[in-house]
Design a protein around this nucleic acid. Sequence first.
DNA 1: CGAATTTGACCGGCGC
DNA 2: GCGCCGGTCAAATTCG
Length: 292
Amino acid sequence: MPDHEFRDFYYHASTIFNNDYHVEAADLFRVSSADHYPFTDCLHSSMDQYGEKASGLSPSSSEVFSPTKKEHAGGNSGEVMAITPNSSFSSSSSEAAGNCEEDSENNKNNKQPEESPKKGSKTAKKKDERKQKEPRFAFVTKTEVDQLEDGYRWRKYGQKAVKNSPFPRSYYRCTTQKCTVKKRVERSYQDPSTVITTYEGQHNHLLPTSLRGNAAALLQPPMFLPPQLAGMTSFPHELFAQMAPHDMNSQAGAAVSSMLAENPFQQHHQHQVSDNGLLQDMVPSRFLRHEP
DNA sequence: CGAATTTGACCGGCGC
DNA sequence: GCGCCGGTCAAATTCG
C-alpha cells in the first residue's frame, strides 16, 4: 500500500430514527455500541488522490475487497463498504464507487467560475494546470427521502441518468454566494432503500440563518454527526483530518493499510471497538462510546 | 414575478 | 480520431 493522502471521507449512516441515528451496518470500520452513532462505518479516502491512480496498490487488494463478498456481511443490513484499488468503495451502493472514480472531472468549472470561459471557448485552459481537487466525502443513508435536510440550501443544477441504474443522479450547488460546495444525490440501484450523497468542497459560511434553530438545530454540520462532534468542524472530512491530522498517510494510512492487509469481512464483523484495534487510530477514543 | 427546477445540449476526459 | 460518459450550462418551464 503506498502512501496516501486521505481526503475523501466516506461516511455511512443508516436509518435515522428520531434524532438518533441507528447504525445498521458497519463492516469495514465497526464501532461498538454505535447504535446511536452514525460515525461508524467507513473511514476511507481517495487513495488515488482524485483520479490519479494508486500505482502502488497490488492487485490483490481488489480481491480482498471484492464487492461480491457483501453477502458475507454479518450484522443486520448486509451493507458493506469495500475498498477497491482505485480507492472507491464498493458496497450495496456501487454508485458511490462510481462517484469516487470521477474525481478528475469535478472541478473543471468551479475552479475559476468567474473568469473561465463558458462553452465554446476551448483555449483558455492550461494543459499543465492541475485541477484543484476539492475534498469530498460520501455517505449512504437508508432513507425514503431523496434529499436529506442538512441545514444548507441547495440549488439543483443538473440531473443525469446513472449508468446501469434506473435512478438518476442529481447535482446540487450551495445557494450561498461564493460558496462552491456541491453535492450529488443518487439512489442506490442495488439497494433502493439507500441514498448516496456525495459532498464536494467546504462551506465558507455558516448555516443559513433561516434554517438555524430548525432543522439545522438537529442537523448541525457535520451532517448527522453525534452531538459530541457537532461544532468541531463543519465537514466530516475535516473531522477526518483532525483524526489523522496533517500527515494523513501516517496514522490513518497505517490503519487502512492494516485493514487492507487483512480481510475485513472475516475479521471486523465480529470485532467491537473494544478490541483496541484500528479504529482508534483514526477515531479518537472520546468519540467512541464503550458502554452499551 | 423572482426563484427554483427541468432537461437537452455542450464540454472535456478517457479508453479504444 | 472517435465515441462514451460524467458533469455542467442555460433556456424553458414550473413553483411559491
